[in-house]
């Protein structure tokens, strides 16, 4: 695989919490314009993996490269290329949407002359035009989630990390978010975690299934479709019946 086309490479990523190994030896490679879905039961290590990829958690072992820059050696340069949506939206409820996004843009070193453009563009994309002057605290869960997604993409990062982006949204909003993710996937590479299998099927190019801190299955969705394999069966097979994991 040619390294220049990879925007995110995680090698032998591991994380211990005391004696407990939350993530062990995960390998992730993300090509430009690719949407990767991370699946797995609760506690499989999805969020821990994403926290490490976003620089929120230092890995016990392994390396992470973002656009060819080592995240651990040059965190500031690498982080400029990352947009991160944590599991719980990181919102300052006492600020308005505009104030908040402006702060995030400055934090991500968007040139002050371009902040207004970035703000308009991202609000347009996430459907936030009506609520710019409103306090984040009074917005509905759906709008808050959209603000959180806007926060992750305002600086047009090359790598977007989305931890359960569609949680708490109604079916219409989920569809909108999926469309947004697909559109973002044209220019950036995206890694997202979810519990909804159909979400992976509709928006992802590739899927990795995590269980007990390791990758137990990895495949391109086009392959799955070609062989008409059902993702649900695969998921059950690799996360429920442990004896099969060893065979893989």
């Amino acid at each position: 695989m040619n390294e220049t086309t990879c925007t995110l490479i995680a090698h032998d990523l591991s994380r211990q919490f005391g004696q407990y190994a939350a993530v062990q030896g995960i390998e992730i490679e993300l090509k430009q314009g690719e949407v990767l879905g991370l699946l797995g039961p609760n506690g499989a290590g999805k969020s821990t993996t994403m926290q490490m990829l976003s620089g929120n958690l230092a890995p016990t072992r392994g390396s992470i490269q973002i656009c060819g820059i080592d995240l651990l050696d040059h965190p500031e340069e690498a982080k400029q290329n990352i947009g991160y949506l944590p599991e719980i939206p990181p919102l300052y409820k006492e600020l308005t949407v505009d104030e908040y996004l402006r702060f995030v843009a400055k934090l991500h070193r968007v040139e002050s002359s371009q902040i207004l453009d970035a703000l308009v563009r991202v609000k347009d994309r996430c459907g936030l035009n009506q609520v710019g002057k409103k306090l984040i605290g009074i917005l509905s869960k759906g709008f808050q989630q959209r603000v959180a997604i806007a926060q992750a993409i305002i600086h047009q990062p090359k790598v977007i990390i989305l931890d359960e982006p569609s949680v708490g949204l109604d079916p219409n909003q989920i569809r909108e978010i999926r469309e947004l993710i697909r559109e973002l996937g044209k220019t950036a590479s995206i890694i997202l975690s979810t519990h909804i299998l159909s979400e992976v099927e509709t928006i992802c190019d590739r899927v990795q299934i995590l269980n007990k801190g390791g990758v137990v299955y990895s495949a391109a969705l086009s392959d799955l479709k070609q062989k008409s394999i059902n993702l649900e069966q695969i998921f059950e097979q690799f996360t429920l019946k442990k004896e099969l994991v060893g065979d893989y």
């Binding site: 976003s54 929120n56 965190p75 500031e76 944590p86 939206p89 990181p90 300052y92 934090l107």
Partner: peptide, 14 residues
């Protein structure tokens, strides 16, 4: 408490 620390930590800020 508000889980906003990840935002600061993921940003290119020391």
């Amino acid at each position: 408490r508000n889980h906003t620390m990840p935002l600061l930590m993921a940003a290119p800020v020391t």
